[in-house]
């Protein structure tokens, strides 16, 4: 089987992967329609209890300055705005998706998950430092960047085990081991999954290019932030991305962010706290 055949057979299997809840697709479509009102969106959100709880938790957090005062979904939607809501729905869905994936012999899924959360948090911290318009968009991008590895863990267990072995024996990054053993990388798979899920193009570019910045076309800042976040989280050894190495920051990615060197410490020292907050926020209370 050629690489392309393998890839397309995986895409077919992706049909059986947990899908994103229909809520995301619905809300995403509605937002693109200028006639959609906050009430229309509220009707959809209200049908999802977990999402409703998280939405109210978020708008009543100190972040928005109305502690404990917002009690209806429609006012929450108005306060948050459509785009922030979309990002909340997406991260909420992805969070739950990771919870149901079960066990793996190859990698500790909790640790893998923790790496993704830490990247989400670090991406958002970078967003704040560079005054990025939508920090929550970067949070979701960080959360999703390694989604392709989740597919490998589920459907290519044997090869994935070889990939992990290879990173150790040859001291190479997981992406390079994937190229040697599989002929494609988790970024390729993640990109296909993202297309299937109809993710926004910006997020899919972060998934596809976080390890290869030169491929980033339309959203260089977003991709750079996730690229740097991944490296900072690896340097801090939070969670397990599959290999233990810290690759080099792409010079043009760094330039596109316009960060000062001293901001690296500001970002790195806030990651743990953000991870703990995120875990608390998304915890399901049932």
């Amino acid at each position: 089987m050629s690489t392309n055949d393998v890839l397309s057979s995986i895409v077919k299997k992706i049909d059986t992967l947990p899908t994103l809840p229909t809520t995301f697709a619905k809300i995403n479509n509605m937002i693109q329609n200028p006639k959609t009102s906050a009430n229309d969106i509220s009707d959809v959100v209200s049908k999802d209890q977990v999402l409703t709880a998280r939405l109210l938790k978020l708008v009543n957090s100190s972040l928005y300055g109305f502690p404990g005062r917002i009690t209806t979904v429609s006012s929450a939607v108005v306060i948050l705005g459509f785009n922030a809501l979309k990002n909340l729905v997406l991260s909420s869905s992805v969070f739950d998706l990771f919870q149901v994936t079960g066990k793996s012999e190859v990698i500790d899924l909790n640790e893998f998950w923790k790496h993704s959360i830490a990247c989400a948090v670090a991406s958002r911290l970078i967003a704040v430092q560079i005054d990025y318009g939508e920090p929550e968009e970067l949070f979701v991008a960080g959360l999703l960047h390694d989604i392709g590895k989740l597919v490998e863990i589920q459907y290519l267990q044997a090869s994935f085990m070889n990939v992990i072995e290879k990173t150790r024996s040859s001291k190479i990054l997981i992406g390079d081991a994937e190229k040697e053993i599989l002929g494609f990388t988790h970024s390729d798979i993640g990109f296909l999954l993202g297309k299937k899920w109809k993710l926004p193009l910006s997020l899919n570019e972060a998934i596809a290019c976080h390890n290869d910045f030169s491929q980033a076309r339309k959203f260089p800042q977003l991709v750079s932030a996730v690229h740097l976040a991944d490296i900072l989280v690896r340097a801090k050894e939070i969670g397990d991305p599959g290999d233990i190495y810290v690759p080099v920051v792409d010079a043009s990615a760094w330039d596109s962010l316009g960060l000062r060197l001293s901001q690296i410490e500001t970002i790195m020292e806030r990651i743990e706290e953000g991870v703990n907050d995120a875990l608390k926020f998304f915890k399901r209370e049932n």
Partner: peptide
């Protein structure tokens, strides 16, 4: 041992130093 490069660019040197 985990860093591919921790000295040749000032960015990596700073990340290494903070880590």
């Amino acid at each position: 041992n985990r860093f591919f490069d921790y000295s040749s660019s000032e960015i990596m040197a700073e990340i290494f130093r903070i880590a």
